[in-house]
Design a protein around this nucleic acid. Structure first.
Lengths: 185, 185
DNA sequence: TGTACATCAGTGAACGCGCGTTCACTGATGTAC
DNA sequence: TGTACATCAGTGAACGCGCGTTCACTGATGTAC
């Protein structure tokens, strides 16, 4: 019995996201169906298999992440906007640890590059390109890797996630990028 | 039948590492026992449970990582030594993807901070402290996060891992650290 | 030197579990004539 | 307006699987007397 409004397809994705948001573990198809109040077989009406459901969940996560990054990118000061994006990325990972893990865990289970991940990436990449046009690719990669590393280490309990410290680390990198831009090769 | 020399305890850890090195997936206690040529119950003579075995495997991995970092740290040029450490970290992750994942996947399954992880961390932290004594903690965190992010993204198939690009990214950060050191607050 | 006994590493059958997926089905809804 | 039929979402029992772990055991090795 599907007691939510709308099609079961959307309900399953929403349910899966909700399950991931509490309890950091993995998710089984049966558990999602159970939580959606539906038989174990019902999801197969809407998804070819478990992987397809997880893919849809990951896509949903990337849409959420993109929205958060755009929201954070609003400052008129470009460097501040970039740092705000970084902090938003960290906040997303902290608020949705298991979803974040699912989005980025390839495991060769969930196929990569659905295109939706890219659109979240583009929000960062455009901001960096505006700041450091000379070396946009390297600078974007540096920013992404730094922030993704912080997020991953925090999620895995390797470091405490303090946003003051995160801000200091981001500042350090962004200052470096700025200096590069000021002295042309 | 344990056809390896030495105690089964060490054999199991070695076998588990070997299994992780091929096939990026997870590892089951039964599979390790099978691969070691021993009954499913034999490991319980040496490890309290599956988690204890995985813990020992992760510890072994950190010992390997520490050795790699020390090996890379030999350059007389401090900045070069730091970059070499970063590249060694990336190479380790690429050579041992599943082991790397196990070492850092907390999942709240394998308890963190066995102390062995820390000793690998210290190799990096001492090098950074030598270069940037004024802001060693923030700088160490920045280096670790950057390199860990690159490793994680590469393992998850989000970016291609090209060591030339990795070197460029590391260079950018290290230059930034150097500049901070030259102009005192 | 011989015997009795404890220790210890590994065996193998069995358990209960949750899983992804199969299969044939039911019952409601929409559509053609 | 009524009837026959197709479509479609969801059901529920069943499958085979590998898993972690239990249990009682076997047989070799070491030690005390």
């Amino acid at each position: 019995m599907n007691d939510q409004r709308g099609s079961l397809q959307a309900t399953l994705v929403r349910t899966a996201v909700a399950m991931l948001n509490q309890g950091t573990g993995e998710i089984s198809l049966r558990a999602v169906a159970r939580a959606a109040g539906v038989s174990a077989m019902a999801p197969y009406r809407h998804f070819q298999d478990k992987i397809a459901l997880l893919q849809a969940v990951a896509d949903h996560g990337f849409t959420m992440l993109r929205a958060d990054l755009e929201e954070a990118d609003r400052s008129t000061d470009g460097e501040e906007a970039l740092i705000a994006q970084g902090l938003a990325y960290l906040a997303f990972a902290e608020r949705h640890p298991a979803l974040f893990r699912l989005m980025f865990a390839s495991d060769q289970k969930v196929p990569r590059n659905s295109g939706i991940g890219r659109t979240a990436y583009d929000v960062l990449s455009q901001r960096v390109a505006g700041l450091v046009p000379a070396a946009a690719d390297t600078a974007t990669l540096a920013c992404w890797a730094l922030v993704h590393g912080l997020a991953t280490l925090a999620l895995d309990g390797q470091i405490r996630s303090e946003s003051a410290q995160a801000r200091a680390v981001l500042r350090k990198l962004v200052d470096g990028l700025g200096q590069d831009a000021e002295r042309p090769a």
